[in-house]
């Protein structure tokens, strides 16, 4: 027992001072991309051509746009045309509606709005989520699961993952939703009591990610169940996920 207490003392207090202070992110972290305002339309074309998922669209006629929901944050567009795109260190990316994920030159993306008052009254201080991996590679799952470790400790905000959908207030879905998981996802959703929320985490769950338009997948959760919150990334940084959850619950302004 003494060795356990000694180890506890040694390991110390490790919970980050978030959200009181901004999170510590790696120097090379690729957060929200910014399309340069005033850059000529032609400058965006090579950037769009480099995009592996079709998140970036630009042509001579149409104005350029980047769909954050499909973005893998690989940086290929910025490498192809640094004058047109650059990746900022902004980790706050979540949105309530897919159209709010569409970035244009000079746009100021709105932060995710909190849930309706009725939901916030129920879930604002206690949200139990059932995680469903539907074709996810394990990275979004790991960066969701890690919110339970002492560093992030999402339990202090009343958020917790539970084993049964019957005990849950909603689902946190990852992966592009393969046809082989469609029924299981639907059944898990149906097993969650009303009212319930669905959170799609990662490029796959939002729009299929690298697997977009494969006949084997359904291009994300929204094809099977209604989604209330979209958290982009490949995978999203744990702080991006936590920020999305807390905003949804109205816990941070």
């Amino acid at each position: 027992m003494w060795s356990i207490i000694k180890a506890r003392w040694r390991q110390g207090y490790r919970t980050a001072p978030y959200p009181a202070r901004p999170p510590a992110l790696p120097d090379r972290f690729r957060g929200r991309p910014e399309l340069t305002a005033g850059a000529p339309a032609a400058a965006f074309v090579p950037a769009a051509a480099a995009c592996p998922t079709g998140a970036f669209t630009a042509s001579a006629g149409a104005p350029p746009a980047l769909d954050l929901g499909l973005c893998l944050f690989c940086g290929a567009c910025a490498a192809a045309c640094p004058a047109a795109v650059n990746f900022t260190s902004e980790h706050r990316l979540a949105a309530r509606h897919p159209e709010n994920l569409r970035l244009t030159p000079g746009c100021k993306p709105p932060r995710a709005a909190p849930a309706e008052n009725s939901l916030r009254r129920l879930f604002g201080r206690s949200l139990r989520l059932r995680q469903v991996c539907a074709g996810g590679c394990g990275a979004c799952e790991a960066d969701s699961n890690v919110l339970g470790v002492p560093t992030f400790d999402m339990g202090r905000f009343g958020i917790q993952f539970v084993a049964s959908p019957r005990h849950a207030d909603g689902l946190l879905v990852t992966g592009p939703v393969p046809e082989n998981m469609r029924l299981a996802l639907r059944k898990t959703y149906d097993a969650v009591p009303e009212p319930k929320v669905v959170i799609a985490v990662g490029a796959c769950a939002i729009g299929g990610g690298p697997y977009r338009d494969h006949p084997e997948v359904h291009n994300g959760a929204a094809a099977v169940i209604p989604v209330d919150l979209f958290i982009p990334g490949c995978p999203p940084h744990p702080y991006t996920i936590l920020d999305g959850l807390l905003r949804f619950l109205g816990r941070i302004p």
Binding site: T53, L72, C140
Partner: peptide
């Protein structure tokens, strides 16, 4: 353009 991303997400913990 997608090939490397398939490889990196084939098994996310083995990127």
């Amino acid at each position: 353009a997608r090939t490397i991303h398939y490889m990196e997400t084939l098994a996310g913990d083995t990127t």
